[in-house]
Each structure stands twice: as structure tokens, then as C-alpha cells.
Design a protein around this nucleic acid. Structure first.
Lengths: 225, 225
DNA sequence: AAGCGGCGTAAAGCCTTTGTAAAGTCCTAA
DNA sequence: TTAGGACTTTACAAAGGCTTTACGCCGCTT
């Protein structure tokens, strides 16, 4: 969810339209005051603030967001009119995550929103990252994207690696083929394929003697243990 | 190396003496202008700025340092005379790493300098600085910005060098094209481009037989090993 | 025991990803 | 302004993984 504060109705609708067409959830507000109410209800993933606003300006809103515990780590993109103003604002460095000068193209706009969200996502999940799994003689180092069996490195392809990582992330838990397809392959998949079985097979093969840690649960799916 | 800006000669010598006795390298300047010349020659590990200065004051210098690419991540300690002034300055939060109120004891001074440097070192240890890498027959000297293969110097362009440096900074770790674009090309890159592949190609070419240390990880990115 | 559905395995074609050359663009220095 | 180098894009070739197809085996049900 993205919250926008922009006083000009036309610009506001353009931005909303652009982001929605980029398949983001958007709520737009005319001023910071109105947005504050909504922030109490739900904290968004990103704020987009116009700098020039009647009443409280964007910089002031930014400062306030940075001061509140629940919003201080939410990324903020500032929008500003003139190039000269942009430099000045950047120089202030009040902790916005990006600055975009008007006028801007829709594609650039979406792309920079995406970039900020991507960075924020990564930095927030960095703590969760660096999982280092070990089970039996099998180890998985997610930093290096490497797998060893009994200390010997094993080369896995992309799908094989993702599959093993998924299974090892929850030892003992059974994953259905449907779940596996959704997590690794993505969304819609007509459940009439042997692809998962295929990759399970090559995985077991490559894991050698440890291949038996991957167990078939008939009529349900696969698990490791 | 620590740079100090302090107009009072007596205080300046006291500070210099204190730090030298703490086995730091120090250079002291009477005003920001003089220091600027030296910064062009070499960027220090820490700035210590007096706030009250004739001409350009310390806060202004600080703002300038934060605005320049080569100094924006260098820690800064601000020195100020009165306790009341100290609070005011702290409140401004202009991004200094520590504030010390005069008068202060030599030991406290040294210990706080040490603390700031320690913190900065830790945070910058992962943001690759001044690294001297070697891997296989490939060496990278970041001081001289030179690369050799089997002892023979190889000429790299800017992007090629940055790319190799990034990859070699974490041998074994896979970098996605997206990550590479963000780190070397800058932030807002959401585009679909083969530029990275291109530079990988020329890099491998220039590294000759050692080109194979750069490995493709299909569907993920590149790594060196 | 036979039938049935689920699973294992192998091989081959397809399709996505990557390598590479070459043309094009941008930037900088003369 | 022009020339040169660095960088980027384009287009096509090559490679490799992914998916499908086909068939055999196994366990469960009837």
C-alpha cells in the first residue's frame, strides 16, 4: 500500500493511475492531516509526498513521519517542482529515500517507486536472510548459494536449489506439489504436470547418499527429515 | 588520518598533541578553506570541527562535507564551547557523529575519537573501502586502482573496474544483475538491459586465462571464485 | 489377484537465459 | 566542432535448464 499526498487533483489522479497500472495499491490524500488519520489505521509500505503543499509542506510531514516510531523506517519519496529546488532539498538531506523532480514520465515514476520498495524490502529482510541450514550431511549456505553433502560441494540448478531451500527451511513439514509450484514457479499453474517430481528426482540424485532425506508423502507431497 | 579545524592556536596544538600521543595521524587547519585543499589530496578517516570559527563556521563545513560524495560517509566530531549551545546544535541533528563540549579532558577527547572511529570502521568494513584483493592470479589494488593478472597489469575502464571490485569484494557470493546495476550504475534502474552481461564479457576477455574466475550463475547473476 | 491411481525415471524437444559481435549513442577532451 | 573512447543497445547464436512425454513400478483398493 502506497500513500500519496498531493494537493493538485489532476496530478494526484495521474500518480494514482500510474501506480495502479503498475499494480500497486494506492491511497491519495489532499493534505498531511487527512493522511494522518489513515496512518493510524494502517501504516503503508511507502509514502510519496509533494513538497509544495498549502498548509503543512512535504518536508514537515517527512520530519514528522521520521519522528514517529511506527513510520520512521517506512521509505519516503519526495516530489518537487523545479530542478534548483530539488538540489536545495537534496542538500538538506532530511532522510527521504528518493527525490523526483516534476515533471516526470509515468514509466520513470513507477520504476523509481519500484526501486525504492525493492531496496526497502531487501534491507528489512536482511535480518531474515543469511539462513544457513544443515540437516544430516547436507548444508545450505544462502549467501553463497552453495550446497554441500558431507563437505563436498554440489552444483545445483536454480529450481533445484530453490526446491531444496524450501524443503529444508521447514524440516518435517510436508509441502504439496501445489504449494511448491506456487512458491518456486509462481502463481497460476495447471496442476497437471510432473515437473516437481522431475526436480525432486534430480535433487535426490545430486545429493547422493543423502538423497534419502527427501521423502515422498504419498498423496500429499514431499518433505525433508 | 584525522583533520582538525580550529582557529585558536593553543587549543589546536593541545588537540593535535593529544591525538598524536594517542598514536593517531593528525593534520590541523585554521579554517575550512585551507582544509579543503588538503581534502582534495587525501580524504581523512575523521574530521574534528570547531563550531565557532571566524568566517565559515563548523556547521557550514559539516554541511558541505556531507554534500560531497567523497566525504559524505566520513565521520565528523563537532566541538562546541557552551553546554547550552551544545544542546541547540545537537537538536539540529546535522549528522555529526559526536558532539564534545569544551572544555574537555585529553583522555575523554581521545576516547571519544577512538569510539567514533571504531563505529565507523565497523560500518564501513562491509562497504568496501581500501581493499586489496587477490584471487587466483588476479590482484586488485584499490589504492592504485590497478589490476594485475599473473603479475601483468591490465587496463580496465571505470565500470569494468568497479564490477570486478564488487565481485571480488565477496568471493563466492552471487550478485544479481539488479544488485550490480544498483551498486555500480546507481539507484533507479528497473530496466531490462544486457549492459551487465556486456561488461562481464569484456572483463573476462581482459582477464585472459583468469577470466574463468567470473562465473555465471544461471537465473541468478554472477560471482567470482 | 487385478485394476487403478500415484510416483519414479529416462530421453528429447522446447524455451529461456546468456555469450558475443557490431552498431549506435553519449560524453569528454582537443 | 570533431575525434576518440567508453558505454549501451540490438540482434543473433549458443548453451543449458526446464518441461513434457512416455512408460514401468509400486502400493492400495476392490
Amino acid at each position: 500500500m502506497i500513500y500519496i499526498v498531493e494537493d493538485d487533483a489532476e496530478v494526484r489522479e495521474m500518480e494514482t493511475y500510474a501506480l495502479k497500472s503498475g499494480s500497486f495499491d494506492v491511497m491519495a490524500f489532499e493534505c498531511g492531516k487527512v493522511m494522518d488519520e489513515q496512518v493510524k489505521v494502517k501504516v503503508p509500505d511507502l509514502f510519496i509526498l509533494d513538497i509544495m503543499l498549502p498548509g503543512e509542506d512535504g518536508l514537515s510531514i517527512l520530519k514528522r513521519l521520521r519522528g514517529q516510531e511506527n513510520t520512521k523506517n517506512i521509505p519516503v519519496i519526495m516530489l518537487t517542482a523545479k530542478g534548483t529546488e530539488l538540489d536545495k532539498v537534496k542538500g538538506l538531506d532530511l532522510g527521504a529515500d528518493d527525490y523526483i523532480a516534476k515533471p516526470f514520465g509515468i514509466l520513470e515514476f513507477i520504476s523509481r517507486v519500484r526501486a525504492v520498495l525493492r531496496r526497502s524490502e531487501r534491507s528489512s529482510s536482511e535480518s531474515t536472510e543469511a539462513l544457513n541450514l544443515a540437516l544430516g550431511g547436507v548444508t545450505l549456505d544462502d549467501q553463497r548459494r552453495s550446497v554441500t553433502v558431507g563437505g563436498i560441494a554440489v552444483e545445483l540448478t536454480f529450481k533445484e536449489y530453490e526446491l531444496l531451500k524450501l524443503l529444508m527451511s521447514r524440516p518435517g513439514t510436508v509441502f504439496s506439489r501445489q504449494q511448491i509450484l506456487e512458491k518456486i514457479w509462481g502463481v497460476d499453474f495447471d496442476m497437471d504436470t510432473r515437473t516437481v517430481d522431475m526436480h525432486i528426482k534430480t535433487l535426490r540424485q545430486k545429493l547422493g547418499v543423502q538423497g534419502s532425506i527427501i521423502q515422498t508423502v504419498r498423496n500429499v507431497g514431499y518433505k525433508v527429515q
